[in-house]
């Protein structure tokens, strides 16, 4: 059974069809890459999966259940987490606090007000761990707004992981990273628990081909190819779409 599935998922903006009858299926523990030229609908697809957009048509299923009508916060609660192409961190808060917010949402009483936030040691430990895993361990108390662009991208990923997700949707995590940083990030992502299903949107072809078991190619809102990286590399339609632009 697919852990995440869409049936005929469509999103129209007025006359423009951004996502067109997409049937997508993700298995548990899968490492999937999504590529496609600009405007292919990749981020829109993530927006649909995370609940930011309501689909014009079609349905989304998570672990077999229809989640099409769930709001973003409900989708996060069931285990779908996403990061953003344009860095969308909490700029006025420290690195630690950024990750803490996400981790705290999984606490038994995330909105409790009768005890100090500092005393929530479990959450704090988890947040620290995630920061360290992404190489931000020495910058815990820096303001997110003061980080370098590359570190902010890492923080994006850290926040994505902070909610203990079942499915992680990463939107161009390596954009803005140096080649070495990209390689390191992909290594870190590959080392994540096997039960975590990850979908990666990327323009960095090497990174995404390295990471993914299967690649999905989107073009003008539709899936034009899907398969292992070597097959996609040789796919004529894909080459045409990328080179013929």
């Amino acid at each position: 059974m697919n852990i995440l599935e869409t049936k005929n998922l469509t999103k129209r903006f007025g006359g423009l069809i951004a996502v067109n009858k997409v049937n997508f299926g993700l298995k548990k523990g899968e490492r999937r890459g999504i590529i496609g030229p600009n405007g292919a609908g990749k981020t829109t697809f993530f927006n649909l999966l995370s609940g930011y957009y309501r689909p014009s048509e079609g349905k989304i299923f998570f672990q077999g259940e229809d989640i099409t009508n769930l709001k973003p916060f409900q989708r996060s609660r069931i285990g779908i987490s996403r990061t953003f192409q344009l860095t969308n961190v909490f700029f006025d808060m420290t690195v630690f606090e950024n990750v803490w917010v996400g981790a705290n949402s999984r606490a038994k009483h995330p909105l409790k007000f009768f005890s100090s936030a500092k005393k929530a040691t479990e959450i704090a430990e988890k947040a620290k761990e995630i920061c360290e895993m992404l190489g931000l361990g020495d910058k815990l108390h820096e303001l997110a707004g003061n980080l370098s662009g590359g570190d902010q991208r890492l923080l994006e990923v850290a926040i994505g992981l902070s909610t203990d997700p079942v499915v992680l949707l990463l939107d161009e995590p390596t954009s803005g990273l140096s080649p070495k940083e990209s390689v390191d990030l992909i290594k870190t992502l590959s080392a994540l628990p096997k039960e975590l299903s990850i979908v990666l949107i990327e323009h960095n072809i090497d990174a995404v081909f390295d990471f993914s078991r299967t690649i999905t190619v989107l073009h003008e809102g539709s899936i034009i190819a899907e398969g292992p990286p070597e097959k996609i590399r040789k796919n004529k339609k894909v080459k045409q779409v990328y080179l013929g632009e």
Binding site: L111, F113, S115
Partner: peptide
């Protein structure tokens, strides 16, 4: 408290 930190997060983003 955690609620307060969440408030600040709400304000920030």
């Amino acid at each position: 408290s955690p609620l307060g930190k969440v408030f600040i997060a709400v304000r920030t983003n």
